[in-house]
Structures are given as C-alpha cells and as structure tokens.
Amino acid sequence: MKILVCVSKTPETTSKIAFSADGTTFETAGVQYIMNPYDEWYALVRAVEIKEELKKGSVTLLNVGPSSNDTVIRKGLAIGADDAVRINAEPSSSLFVAQQIAAYAKEENFDLIFLGKETIEHNGSEVGGMLAELLDLPFISYANKLELEGTSASVSREIEGGIETVSLETPFVLSAAKGLAEQRIPNMRGIMMAKRKPLKVVEPVAFDDVVEVVQYTLPSAKAAVRMIDPENMDELVRLLHEEAKVL
C-alpha cells in the first residue's frame, strides 16, 4: 500500500488566543505549535501500522505550509513516515489546501489517503471531502476502525448516536477520528532516523481564493458564575426553570 497522510500544524490547545488590532491575523507570538492531534495520533499511526502489518509499502507525509512547519513534519517522520512533502504556501483556505494536495497526489497514485477528521483551530472538516472530489475518489469521514484485506477495506465511522460500517475498494480518502489507532510517542531511534529522511519542497499551483477572513473576535467575557447554596437545590431548579428557561 502506498499511503499519503496529510498533516496540518495547529496551535497547542492550551495556547492563549489573540489577534492583531484589526482582528484579521492570529497573534503567533508565544504560541506553541503541534501537529493536529487527529492527523498525528490516528491518521499517521494507522498508516504506519498498515505498513508494519503488510511489511511493505510506504507512508508519505504531506503538509501545505511554510518552512517553519518543518519541525512538525520531522516529528511525523520520527513517528514512522518514510518521507515527506511540503507544499510551500500559506494554507489560506480549505479549498486552497485541497487543490494543492490534489495537484500533488494526482501524479502519485496513492492507494490510501488519510487526513484528520478536522483541524482543531478551524474545525472545518472540509479538506478531506474536497480532496476526494478533486481526485474522484470515495471519502469516508470520521473513521474509527479500518481493516484491509488486499484491496478491500471495511471501515467503521461515527455517526449521530451510532456507528456505521461500510465496505469499499482502494483507492479512497479517509478522515481519522479517535479509535482508529493509539497515539505513539517517537523514540530516540525514530528521532535520529527522521533527520535523514527525505523532505521534498514543492511549489504551489496557482489558485484564487474565494473565502476571506473578515475578522476574528473574542467571545464576550462570560458573566461571573452564580454560586448556589448546596443546601438549596430548589433554588437552582427555580433559576434553571424561570431565569435560564432550560428546564
């Protein structure tokens, strides 16, 4: 199996979120970046597992981003990807990213293309479907289990209040959710080897963006919590019923 894993870089969850005065750009000073957890923990690890199970094939990492993303890419190589491609552009919108990945993947005939279910900063859940459409491949979102038997796959995915199991043939695109694999911590040997693995830089294809950021704002500060006397649960119920009107 020739597998492509698309990974993005996101601010670490506990980072303080701030924007420029005009609200158009994210303040990067002091922000710690990580590989998007779904991409790292589930998509990448499942790809590496498949290669280990089959004892053949390859895992290529792909990121659309500037050179400052190379540390995140090297971490992915340390976890077990064989090589990496960075498409050298600011990922300005989902469709832009999908177009870039599609332009690269078209030539490469991957059997499987994995993504995370969403990036934790924009919670878009869009790139996977876009990429699949551009490559004319099936797309299974929110996969939490994948089994392969030759070119036949059985995939379970999360749906509202349940699990759906589907079968299909490779090639296809999949987005990974919790359960697909277990997080792996790179070991020393992996980290050393990652330094020597190839990281190819590719220039982007031309694309005019059709979605623009107008501005980011911070939610208005929450009013202070109203503490209720633990001896008086009737009062809490009254407030939920009459004031908050949720009961």
Partner: peptide
C-alpha cells in the same frame, strides 16, 4: 447541516461547484 452526513458532503459539494465554503 453540520452533521456526520453534512461533514462528508460539504467539501465534495464545494469542490465540485468551485464554491467558497464555510462549515459549522
């Protein structure tokens, strides 16, 4: 809808229609 179905379809539909798209 931004549901499991909507999340599967939105990217596809947007790419097919060359449409700008915002989810959720």
């Amino acid at each position: 809808s931004y549901s499991s179905t909507g999340k599967t379809l939105q990217g596809r539909v947007a790419a097919r229609l060359k449409a700008g798209s915002v989810s959720g």
